[in-house]
Design a protein around this nucleic acid. Sequence first.
DNA 1: TGAACTCTGTGACATTCGTCACAACAGGTT
DNA 2: AACCTGTTGTGACGAATGTCACAGAGTTCA
Lengths: 226, 226
Amino acid sequence: MSKVDHLRNVPIFTDLSDSDLAKIADKMIPREYEKGQMILLEESQGETFFIITGGAVKVTRLSDDGREVILAILGESDFFGEMSLLDGEGRSANIVANEPARMLTLSRSDFLDCLESYPKIAIALLEELAIRLRKSDQQIESLSLSDSEQRIGITIVRLAEELGTIKQGHVTVQNLPFQQDIANMAGTSRETVSRTLKLLEDKALVKRDNRDLTIYNFDTFRQAFS
Amino acid sequence: MSKVDHLRNVPIFTDLSDSDLAKIADKMIPREYEKGQMILLEESQGETFFIITGGAVKVTRLSDDGREVILAILGESDFFGEMSLLDGEGRSANIVANEPARMLTLSRSDFLDCLESYPKIAIALLEELAIRLRKSDQQIESLSLSDSEQRIGITIVRLAEELGTIKQGHVTVQNLPFQQDIANMAGTSRETVSRTLKLLEDKALVKRDNRDLTIYNFDTFRQAFS
DNA sequence: TGAACTCTGTGACATTCGTCACAACAGGTT
DNA sequence: AACCTGTTGTGACGAATGTCACAGAGTTCA
């Protein structure tokens, strides 16, 4: 798959013509990362924009005592790095490759040039940030009001929407993240995730085997947790 | 103060010339709201962009059982309503006037025209959304990792930065929001806020009289809670 | 001045959930 | 197989904090 093909799948670039895409693609540099490799450190200045062309990364924040919060898990055609390019602040989050991952990168100045030259990109990016803000607000609500079972349920919905595949009416997440990661997304402990998953299985809402999780009735499931 | 004067104070318009500002100002319609009045309902379609020219509003989400989460308190020169204009989704939050408030409003189509015509606005808006996203991420972290005292401390920092005034080295927040509102911002209960404020006062970190709260040493205070 | 509200302070209690401890299990390597 | 490492399951316990109940202050309005 060519660079341009990858770009076409990215929401903020969909409105552009092939020739414009090609111009941008020319400026992008491919990079590869191994599983577990740090892609961006919290402290460093943000100077690069990244588009994921393969694999997955997790976006985290770390507290002083080393506990981590997972803000998002991003996969193919997602992008990141735009935040500190936009407001000039340092990074607010760490990015780690969750599995072997490939990226296309764009330098700060090329990225800002794009925004100036193609207002459509700026508007599409606004849209994307609005969506993310919305999700953040939802998560703040759920962390504030819900108990751990609810929060874990919502987290599973998020994961299913991001990573799941639909097969004869029910959604399957293959290769579910570790319980520790789910806990760090849901703002709870690993043990509570373990117990809650068992609970959900007892209630016949989900089925697990190995690293796969199947949600029997996704719509009612989502209904129940939001 | 004229419309244009108000607009000049709004971050996303600062880069514009007076004549451009005047053109935009012409399209804006002033509105007034009483204390407690609903400005936007969660369910309604978003069709308007608002700039606050006086007073203050709170941005909230409500759960089914009526508990509320306060996502932000906005004051003069802040704006809202852009989210659902951008991504076309319905409102994600309610907006209520916290005190008598005045606004300038812009219709959906005029707002989008502005973005197309003045790329600088789009870029400044991107910056603003990036800042908000950053704050949301911080709050998600704090809700996930911190205990109630920390969260209340952080909430007080937020309030002080938004509403506080500096007087001979220490910051005073006049007219502190009710404990119930602080609780809804910090994701805790009203009673815990009451006890924690007393605790902070016992530790000689803050002083209260009536509705005013003074933070003796703002820098160390902020340090301690983030 | 009272009366009616709204907000705040505080004790008692119940519950959720994080933490610790350890066992069971899986996958990979020798 | 035996071993190691990383992951998951589960019981026991205690601390943090939400909830309930009510008293005391402070405000508003007649």
